[in-house]
Structures are given as structure tokens and as C-alpha cells.
């Protein structure tokens, strides 16, 4: 299985994302923001970083990149897409996911090992978890505060589309402690913390993050 990892100008975590893909047992394929060629990959990861220096709004300029046109069309047909941190911001700006990521409520840049509770294991990216499972993965962001209107929040809650919530103190002011969400179909997932940094105890606080990448393999190989 081939999993694409997109590099935008200012992306930081594409190498770690590619490494996570390979740890999970898939081939990582580099995709370039300026091309609309998905190179026949079976899934795509939009990694973290500060694409376009967070100019305009985080993820706003990247959301209009040529590669995103192809990803939007593919995602609407069920193609698996995982957006991590800046990638989540890109997915929200591209309207593949609802809501927006705004400045952390306390103004701090967060860099911490964060405990999350998995709430939906039906998505292409979370099927290897059990519901209620607590995981610890790194989080590092200044604009991770998930915002949406009441109607959208109700819809997310009713449809079980909140895939993970922060456990303990809400770190950034996110509505309903939301750390990650999915679309109606469960093929597009956005997550603020970084599973690709938690795949090996040598470099991460746990190996919990690897399950996001093995989940998509399980789902696609079946």
C-alpha cells in the first residue's frame, strides 16, 4: 500500500510522517503541494508544520494548493486523508472538515505530551483503537483551539464524529475538549496532536500514535 505525504512550503513533519507510514508497513510517497499528481497513492497524510509561515490564517494558503484540488475530489469519493496539526488546519480551511482552529485561549504555544481519549474507532484512521482508550502523544501548537457554531457542534456530537478529546485540563480552549474530528463518511480525519511523533519509545512518549497509521492499512488492505 502507498501512502502519500504532502510537503507544503514550511511543512516540518513530513519526514516523521513518512517514517510513521513505513513503521506501519506501507510505502511512503512524497507529494509536492505545487503538483496535482497524487501518484496513485491509496491514502494521504497532511503533516504538521507552519506552511506559508501561517500567513493569512494557519493552513489557508495551503488549502488552495494544486495538490489540494486533487485531494478534495478524491476525499469526496472516500479516499483516506489524515491531517495532523497544520494538516488539520488545512483540512478545515479546505472545508473537508467543519469548524476552524483558532489561537490557543491562553496565548501559549503548547509543547507537551498530551493524553487523549479515543471516542470513535469506526474511521479509516482509528479502527485499531478501542472506544474509551486513552493514549499519550505529543502536542505542539499555538492555534489548536477548535471552534465551530452550536449547530455544527451538535451535529458532531450526535453523529459521533469527535474522534478524540483532551483528557484532564483543556489545553487550548477547544470546544467540547475536541482534539480531533472526522467527516460524515469517516475517511477524512483531522487531529491536533501528533501521532507520527509517538511511534517508537526512542523518540516519543509512547507507540500509541502508530495505530493511526496501521488502522488505515487494515482498512485499505481488507
Amino acid at each position: 500500500m502507498r501512502v502519500g505525504v504532502v510537503t507544503f512550503p514550511g511543512t516540518l513533519d513530513d519526514r516523521d510522517a513518512a517514517r510513521a507510514v513505513e513503521y506501519a508497513g506501507a510505502d511512503a510517497v512524497s507529494l509536492w503541494h505545487g503538483s496535482d499528481d497524487l501518484k496513485h497513492v491509496d491514502a494521504v497524510v497532511l503533516p504538521g508544520g507552519f506552511s506559508y509561515g501561517d500567513y493569512l490564517r494557519c493552513g489557508a494558503i495551503s488549502a488552495k494548493a494544486p495538490i489540494m484540488k486533487s485531494i478534495i475530489i478524491a476525499a469526496e469519493h472516500g479516499f483516506p486523508v489524515l491531517g495532523i496539526c497544520n494538516g488539520f488546519q488545512v483540512l478545515a480551511e479546505a472545508h473537508l472538515l467543519p469548524g476552524a482552529l483558532t489561537r490557543n485561549a491562553d496565548m501559549h504555544f503548547l509543547c507537551t505530551d498530551q493524553t487523549l481519549k479515543i471516542e470513535n474507532n469506526k474511521t479509516l484512521w482509528t479502527n485499531g483503537f478501542s472506544v474509551g482508550q486513552e493514549i499519550v502523544i505529543p502536542m505542539k501548537n499555538a492555534e489548536g483551539n477548535f471552534n465551530c457554531d452550536d449547530a455544527t457542534l451538535n451535529e458532531l456530537e450526535q453523529e459521533g464524529r469527535i474522534i478524540a478529546r483532551y483528557v484532564g485540563v483543556n489545553p487550548n480552549g477547544s470546544r467540547a475538549d475536541i482534539a480531533g474530528i472526522t467527516n460524515k463518511r469517516g475517511n477524512v480525519v483531522g487531529l491536533m496532536p501528533h501521532p507520527e511523533h509517538a511511534i517508537d519509545l526512542l523518540t516519543g512518549p509512547s507507540k500509541d500514535g502508530l495505530t493511526f497509521f496501521t488502522s488505515v492499512l487494515n482498512a485499505m488492505v481488507k
Binding site: T102, R103, N104, A105, D106, M107, N145, N147, G173
Partner: peptide, 13 residues
């Protein structure tokens, strides 16, 4: 402008 209901930590600071 941010909508009135959206928290504006920059403005607050």
C-alpha cells in the same frame, strides 16, 4: 474581523 463570539487572545493581550 473575528466574529464577536470567537475568542480573540491577541486583542485581549
Amino acid at each position: 474581523m473575528l466574529k464577536p463570539e470567537i475568542l480573540d487572545p491577541q486583542g485581549q493581550a
